[in-house]
């Protein structure tokens, strides 16, 4: 089954990004495809390359990047929401790309299921 995931909150502040990541990982491990993860609202902050958590904490941004690299998950950051919050190509972490809201709608159309994580 083809899943689309929506992440509406930033990392560390809210559990949404962790839940979305663990869901995505479990979906892949169980033979499903996660076609796209779309980051919206403060969720765009998941894509900041400048993120530096303490050593003993999980690295939420790198975790997403790794998932993109290993499983070809398309990580899309909404351009309008990103520019509002200072996320640009120059500070974008590996595996993420910036694009329009149409990518969210497309995920809704193309995927069998769309699952949203937020506040």
């Amino acid at each position: 089954m083809k899943f689309g995931i929506v992440v509406n909150e930033g990392p560390y502040q809210h559990q949404a990004s962790d839940s979305a990541y663990l869901f995505t990982k479990a979906a892949i491990e169980n033979g499903h495809e996660v076609w796209r993860v779309f980051f919206y609202h403060d969720g765009v902050n998941n894509a900041s390359r400048l993120t530096e958590p303490p050593q003993d904490d999980r690295h939420i941004v790198n975790r997403w990047s790794k998932l993109a690299e290993e499983h070809k998950v398309d990580l899309v950051v909404c351009v309008a929401a990103a520019l509002r919050r200072g996320i640009k190509e120059e500070n974008l972490a590996q595996g993420f790309r910036i694009s329009g809201l149409g990518q969210l709608v497309e995920a809704g159309i193309k995927c069998d299921r769309l699952v949203t994580f937020g506040d």
Binding site: M1, F3, N8, L22, F23, K25, A26, A27, E29, N30, H32, D112, R113, L114, V115, T116, F117, G118, D119
Partner: peptide, 20 residues
């Protein structure tokens, strides 16, 4: 359920709504 069970629930229902 664990996360795999969560995935299974999402897969077995036609739609899912997060009450945010």
């Amino acid at each position: 359920v664990d996360y795999a069970g969560f995935v299974e629930l999402a897969a077995s229902n036609k739609t899912c709504q997060s009450w945010l």
